Simulated assay, not measured.
Amino acid sequence: MGSTEEQGLDVAALERYLAAELTDGLAGPLQTRLIAGGRSNPTYELTDGTSAWILRRPPYGEILQSAHDMSRESRVMSALAGSAVPVPRVVAQCEDDSVIGAGFYVMDKIEGRTYRTAEDTGTLTPEQRAALTESMLDTLVALHEIEPAAVGLADWGKPEGYLERQVRRWARQWHTIKTAERPEVDELVAILERSMPPLKFPGIVHGDYKIDNLMVAHDDPSQILGVLDWEMSTLGDTLADLGVLISFWDEIGQFHNPITAGATAHDGFPTGAEVVAKYAERRCISIDDLEWYIVFADFKIAVILEQIHARHLKGTTVGDWFDDIGDMVEPLLGRARDRAIRAGL
């Protein structure tokens, strides 16, 4: 566990808050550790020597309006508790910036593991990779088939106009935070606006569904213990989640998303086209226009990476895993443009 100064976290203030907030208080002094994985939102492991939790807070420094709303993330996980979509138990939510400098929430730590890299998934057998894929799709379909009102999320968002709002939002955020001029961004925005598909399958959208946002059992990678990172969740077009999944679905011999960097490019993982077919079969739907959603996913991810890169240049990131972020932006924008052209969007 690191020091308060190293982590940018007021541990003493947090300890006082949790001692009063948690039902059973704290069993001992609070220890904290900044953990990797939360590149967008700083994420910490907490323990009192008996229990362990995870804290998530918005990034340090300037935050764009409507971005990194931790109360939304905690609300959707609380709503999905007990559903077919496994989520961690939220134990505290604080909107008082005076405690640690920003709103945050605390959830139970799940004792499992996350597969983030090609090296991680390289330890699995082909059969385990195939089984993990099936569980990922089962969980995503389960989420998309939940009736929002049944879990208290009827007001979670407005599916109508979701895609239009998303394109405008990410275009606006690019021009707010960009660190370099990239004319392909405006070209992509124009393509996305003119070729936007109609809403067909509204529902709860995770917003960032990929292999490294899943916590699985140590002894059985097909057993998903928790779906993580819900900050972009809303009601919208569920095919947007499939587009994100395919953007991150790396294949052998193909361009790899620079974030996942080949995590699914191993024998046993199906191709992206097979993933789409499996998803469509499970939902009993026909999908004939997913290219738009994949192009949009690459564009959105590139903007998110540019946001993180901009904060890193200003010195407001915490941790030592940000130096390569800026180099990830151009390849994703290039792939999005090339895919859009090939698809005739």
Rank of each mutant, 00 (worst) to 15 (best):
V85P: 03
K109T: 00
L143E: 04
R168Q: 14
W170D: 02
R129W: 10
G101D: 07
S71L: 13
E127N: 12
T139Q: 01
T123I: 10
E119A: 15
L163N: 08
E147I: 03
E147T: 08
M107Q: 13
S74N: 05
L137H: 00
A171K: 08
H68N: 11
A79F: 02
H175F: 15
P88V: 07
Y115E: 01
Q65N: 12
G152H: 05
A131V: 02
T176E: 15
G61D: 02
V85D: 06
T133Q: 14
Y115I: 00
T123W: 09
D155A: 14
Q173I: 02
F104E: 08
G157H: 05
G82Y: 08
A142H: 00
D96Y: 07
I100C: 10
D69P: 03
L132V: 05
S135W: 00
E73S: 08
D108A: 09
R116V: 07
C94N: 12
I63S: 04
P88I: 04
I177D: 09
V91T: 07
M70K: 13
L143P: 00
E95T: 12
A142S: 13
R172T: 15
D96M: 04
E95F: 01
H68I: 00
S83E: 09
T121V: 10
V90W: 06
K109L: 14
E134W: 05
L124D: 09
E145A: 10
P86C: 07
G122F: 13
K109M: 14
T117W: 00
T117H: 10
T123K: 15
E160N: 07
A150R: 11
A180M: 10
W170E: 01
A102Q: 11
D69C: 09
A149Y: 02
V87A: 10
A130G: 14
Q166V: 02
A118F: 07
L124F: 13
R165V: 01
Y162S: 03
R75Y: 04
Q65K: 14
S74H: 04
A150K: 09
T123N: 09
M136E: 03
R129V: 06
D155M: 05
A150S: 15
E164Q: 12
R172Y: 02
D108Y: 04
R129M: 13
K158Q: 11
D120W: 08
P148C: 10
E164N: 06
P86S: 06
D69V: 12
V90R: 04
A118C: 12
G82T: 08
Q128A: 14
L132H: 13
A92Y: 09
L137M: 15
Y162N: 00
V91Y: 07
G161M: 00
M70Q: 13
D138T: 07
L132F: 14
